[in-house]
Design a protein around this nucleic acid. Sequence first.
DNA 1: TCTGGGGTCCTAGGACCC
DNA 2: TCTGGGGTCCTAGGACCC
Length: 359
Amino acid sequence: MNALRRVIAHLDIDAFYASVELQRHPEARGRPLVVAGTGPRSVVTTASYEARRYGIDSAMPAARARALCPDAIFIAPDFAAYRAKSREVWDIVRASFETVGQAGIDEAYLDVSSLDRPLPALRELVVAVRERTALQISVGVGPSRLVAKTASSAFKPAAFVAMGREQAAAHFAGHAVRLLQGVGPKTAERLAAVGVETVGDLQSANPTLLARRFGERQALALHTRAHFHDDSPVETSRVAKSRSSELTFPADVSDQARLEQTLVELALELGDGLRTRQRRARTIAVKVRLDDWTTVTRARTLPYFTDESATIAATALELLRAYAPPRPVRLLGVRVASFDDESKGAPAGSEGSQLALHL
DNA sequence: TCTGGGGTCCTAGGACCC
DNA sequence: TCTGGGGTCCTAGGACCC
């Protein structure tokens, strides 16, 4: 066996939130179902496959979804329920597979290189998950995360596809570049401007022209991706680097007192979260989105670590006041980062500094 | 019918140090 | 007698993903 040969699987729960809601509302079976918030500015979180036939999809404004399909059943998201169900699924997966890298609530990568017959093992897993949780998983298998993920996404729902790198490069050549991980709407637009529309176009694009347009690094990354080269490992544990809380107001807010009140509440939430997780942060940032969608961030790094809501709130308030939003505010957010157990470590004397500054 | 919330990574520029 | 060069830390904005 070739030790360098990698076999990676990507697992994705089909229409996860909508599927959980269908279990809780069996009467909705067969009908279009949309999971979306109830506020005037909420967006679609997940749509069932029936609802997708009306053109409804994730991130679409809920109001637009209602217009597209007034008869759909709309349900407000219940993230606690989804987290619980997600845990059930991935616990089953982790019981049978060693290298599991969760990549969100409803997807994960598995490194199954060491298995003699990975495909039958994965088939069994899909059956086990379906029997025990009534959820359908799509599976893509390939020599890299990129191939595995692209395969599962392209063939879901209920996908079970294995393909090699060259096979993927040939099979997806006719697809829009947007299919590739890391190519979003902006990059797709810039590529279209130089005549690159499909994955195949990108595969054969002139490297010099690409580099002139996108810079050496990004051009290389795009080209590499188009040919489905990817050697990124499956990471089984990742430590969060930041945490944030934000709120979009139902209607834009100009009242300074109301903004400050909201900011303090967000800071309190974050402080609670830090203490629960026993982490402390040095960088505190605020995010302000104005009514014209301008988004501004302001950050300050303290000379000490903190998990105190009062410190986070006071710093966030200073940052907000210094910025003084020039227009009505649509969204307010607070973020903390530079945690104390990062490998960078604490600056010397941070404990003393904290004492001194809090006297 | 306008556009959520929680994250990660990248880039670019300035301050500061040796 | 026109301004080196590299490294690190920090901030701000932006693209992208689920």
